[in-house]
Amino acid sequence: MSKIIIGRYIPGDSIIYKMDPRGKIIATFLFIVIIFLANNWLSYLFLSVFTLLAVWATKLKPKVFWDGVKPLIWLILFTSVLQLFFTTGGKIYWHWGILNISEYGIQNSIFIFIRFVMIILISTVLTLTTTSLEIADGMEWILKPLGYLKVPVAQIALVMSIALRFVPILLDQAVRIMNAQRARGADFNSGGLIKRIHSIIPILIPLFIGSLTIAIDLATAMEARGYREGAKRTRYRVLKWSKYDWINLGYFTLLTLILLLTRTY
């Protein structure tokens, strides 16, 4: 259970790990935009090669990437099959009612498939090599301009990093409460939906009270340590931009240029 919520960071020390989270987040967003430039076989080929190289550069086992794709595989296949049957154009190979398999249909469904998988792979590269705290720090920097609109970015970031820090503790509490309920004969794994929801309520209530206690304690401790809401603070943890981040951005800029050159207009 903890795997899903905490994110799936896997410690490592390849070049991707040395990159700044800001660069990685920007590159991921850039990738999701430029992926729509690809529209022919050659551009899709370059897109795939660049993505797979990035995957390879993490030096992580292919299995962990497959774990990223697996939960979505039915959605991807379903979308691809829809494309396959409903796109018309080019040579028609098969035809039945409103369904048909055409030249364009085959091509589009393969393109959609590649597009999906590549987006998942690139975002998996980000989440596997970046801790949730780094992502929160990176997002804080990226969202900084919102500060001019009076959005309390620094406060939101502090709340985020504290929330991230308490996820394992709350999970721990949830497991403990579940075990306590189980010891009293509760059964969480059988029965219909209604019954299951019923058996979850006795977990949620103590969990909710537990988090309130944590929140009150934490607020007191923060105040005792001189935290003033809305006051200026200095920062101990800072992000450092290095040559690896230029490599990162350079890599994706190069991909953008190649896609612009190879796509059909």
Binding site: R165, T213, D217, L218, A221, R225, G226, R228, T234, R237
Partner: peptide, 21 residues
């Protein structure tokens, strides 16, 4: 647990210093 604000040991130790700029 309920007084550990930072994400890591050093971050937590720095919390009071950050507050005092």
């Amino acid at each position: 647990d309920n007084q550990f604000v930072g994400a890591t040991v050093e971050d937590d130790v720095a919390f009071g210093l950050e507050n005092r700029q």
